[in-house]
Design a protein around this nucleic acid. Structure first.
Lengths: 195, 195
DNA sequence: TAAAAGTTAGTGAATGTTCACAAACTTCAC
DNA sequence: GTGAAGTTTGTGAACATTCACTAACTTTTA
């Protein structure tokens, strides 16, 4: 587990970056806009971060850390694989509903092209999700809640693909529709198919 | 059906743009690089297209047109919904295997941010796929090949989400793994789940 | 009073685009 | 046929704008 000794001011900057990200996308996330949103000059940014990339990295690192803890907690409180499955995605929907900018950050390929470090950070986030999902699906298959006609990896692919497409549509809709409501429908559909 | 009175030279430029796209991503697709690849000056580009955006639009329009025809043909030759379903994705995998740059063009959000027109062009491509998939799934559900426990739209969402994630992974792998081989596995998995 | 946090005013590099101009080719009038 | 006129396709040099980032100086804060 990583440490997050990020200052209050740094956190404010990261928050502003997120705000811009969800409002204007990656192309809107410039040092100029970020400084504007912070109501100070561009150069002031560099008092707190060494580069623009580091700001994005901080955001993604926070997201990874938070998601890992959050999913861990959500799963821990439930007993059956189905309950855990539902709880996991419920937690995801809650999180993204109140942090819509992370959808842009984590599911955008434009950002992945920016630097090697950012690319790795995004892959790590995907890995966290995978890490938590894998044992649930496996357990579910073992005790017959989920079908074992198809192998675990492919089941996870379908689940994650469905989730990602939801996020994509939500973003295209400019975060208008109710993510939790629509999301829960898809989760139920997935459970129906997987049983 | 749209017309495509695109000149030979324009087609060459679009091809070069695609080449760059699959090699270096969106951030690599600059007028400078494009001219370099064409082995002429940047300004020469503007003899053939009014703007850089128009080049991308031409590429996407071609893709939409081609995909529409291709999917129509692929489906027409088959009788049962299952066969049509398989044929449709088989056609997609063949196409993308030999036109990997379209994966970057059609499934990248970075490009969607560039202009309203490009955004629309990408949405049109998604709509084409939807248009062809919908009647197949519906027919399949009617005659009991696919489950009707979940509604058609959600079934399509899952199928398209699975497909998109495949494309994403293929691109992240720099088009290394055998798309057709891996793709067919996922299609079989989907068929198993949907029956 | 010294460090932290801000400002002003710049940097060079890259972007897409436009400009005046030229070589090569085709069309057409005489 | 031959020369004038027009078209196509290219060139190199600029263009304004944006980008991330920096140096030097000032203000705020503890």
């Amino acid at each position: 587990m990583q440490e997050f000794k990020i200052s209050k001011r740094q956190q404010e900057i990261v928050d502003c970056a997120g705000k811009i990200l969800s409002k204007s996308g990656i192309s809107g996330l410039t040092t100029k806009n970020l400084a504007l949103e912070m109501k100070f000059s561009e150069s002031a940014l560099y008092r707190h971060f060494k580069s623009k990339g580091k700001i994005v990295e901080a955001m993604l690192a926070y997201m990874e850390h938070d998601m890992d803890n959050r999913l861990g907690e959500a799963i821990k409180s439930k007993n059956t694989p189905i309950e855990q499955f539902v709880a996991m995605f419920s937690s995801q929907f809650d999180f993204f509903s109140s942090h819509s900018h992370f959808v842009v950050a984590a599911f955008s390929d434009g950002l992945m092209e920016e630097s090697k470090e950012i690319n790795i950070a995004i892959k790590k986030i995907m890995a966290v999700k995978y890490k938590h999902l894998m044992p649930i699906i496996k357990a579910g298959q073992k005790q017959g809640d989920f079908t074992d006609k198809v192998n675990t990896k492919q089941l996870i692919h379908i689940v994650m693909g469905t989730f990602r497409l939801m996020m994509f549509k939500w973003r295209m809709d400019e975060f208008q529709f109710n993510l939790k409501k629509e999301g829960d429908k898809h989760i139920q559909t997935l459970l129906t198919l997987m049983s």
